[in-house]
Nucleic acid binder design. Sequence first.
DNA 1: TATAAAGGTGAATCCGCAC
DNA 2: AGTGCGGATTCACCTTTAT
Lengths: 266, 266
Amino acid sequence: MTVNTIIHGNCIEELKKIPDNAADLIFADPPYNMQLKTVLYRPNNSKVDGVKDYWDKFNSFAEYDVFCTAWLSECRRILKETGSMWVIGSYHNIFRVGTIMLNLGFWILNNVTWYKLNPMPNFLGTRFTNATETLLWCSKSEKSKKYTFNHHIMKRYNGGKQMTSVWRIGLCVGGERIKGTDGKKAHSTQKPEELLKRVILSTTNKDDLILDPFFGTGTTGAVAKKLGRNFIGIERDSSYIRIAQQRIDSIVDLWDEAQWVEAKQW
Amino acid sequence: MTVNTIIHGNCIEELKKIPDNAADLIFADPPYNMQLKTVLYRPNNSKVDGVKDYWDKFNSFAEYDVFCTAWLSECRRILKETGSMWVIGSYHNIFRVGTIMLNLGFWILNNVTWYKLNPMPNFLGTRFTNATETLLWCSKSEKSKKYTFNHHIMKRYNGGKQMTSVWRIGLCVGGERIKGTDGKKAHSTQKPEELLKRVILSTTNKDDLILDPFFGTGTTGAVAKKLGRNFIGIERDSSYIRIAQQRIDSIVDLWDEAQWVEAKQW
DNA sequence: TATAAAGGTGAATCCGCAC
DNA sequence: AGTGCGGATTCACCTTTAT
């Protein structure tokens, strides 16, 4: 039976309704708490369209920590002993997330670096170009030795060499980036499908159940469906859900398993 | 006057003797892997055996947090308002270090990824090859806007394009790796000079004072001297100090400033 | 139609000083 | 503290418009 569900509601409340040891993989793309305070202009005086969404507002580190402790605790309860937990973040939040995960008993297997092909430059020359985001790949505990890791698939996918913890992937732009009727990006932080493809290919098997507590416009669900995995997504914003549902429903051709592992040039 | 000092003693105790606002740059390479390698004791002094449950782990993490809070607090006091703080770590410790730094009021400017050219593979095929370490570059506080950043030097050093937060650098091997009389490596975690060259070139000026509270075999001091910067190192192991002192004393030819910024191929 | 030039944009904690 | 203004500052990729 195929599970293919998007739940509309508050992340923590909906997580509480999910039974223990239910998920093979949890992928979480939580708010980063970006703390943007000023307007940034490019050298040509155009304005940068930064993340100013309501869902990224927190009053303090303490408030953000309480929020993350709550949803991460539920995720750990839901995760199978053999399962994998992935969380993506930037330097704004990933250190707090990582510390909380360690305190909750998660066991870090890799900190994967998304090394962006085309990051936005630092326009004023005040810092290095921030060219990465970080993904934490964790098992449920130190004792969870039987987590799924498809080493040979990833090795072949990487052209015959063991895949490293650095993934060189472009931003989600062009045709893949979902636009609204106004032509503007539908979600300010849509992730590239290539990122989810690697996460799902490496740490799940076919028919596994994937949970995404911050579903957004459904990249996790779209890739899960294409790869023949089940998923449950939780999202509180109904406008994102409409987009995600349409996106996923429109997928008819699943990816050919024989092609998943073809070597790619990056 | 040139400051070129190696202090033998306990890191935290020696840091306390250094006055406020003294250092232009602090580079710290603290112990990484405190967890689970040491014997744990319960509050009643009984020894914790084998099983590492949630509370055991938390105790271990707590000790590491106390240690880091102590030396990082001293470093922040010592750092000039215009100064830079750098800390290097791996996924074992950098999340805790990052959280503590944020809680102390440090302001993250970049999380620089040291992307290793020649990482050790994962022999068992149980994880992705761990190919990175992380450097946190921070100013003293959010309000510290006048930190030194030699944007143009780094841009030229990077072949004319803005340098990004990903640094592709090899491990410290071959002739650069200091060996003992037994032919074995003198220090288990000696860092490549190229790493320190970028840190020092980007965030200090000539004659600035650099502090390294975990001096080891003196890579920070060696590069500081070659680049015409002053330094103070703290190290508790006298055998490391002997090696570092000899290493630094043997440096006679400083690097030619005109050549620092020549574009390199990486 | 093909090629070239111009314009838009991405999870961004992006200035300094005078008044 | 807020405002205003002078001045220094950007990379890769995709889309649209012009030749």
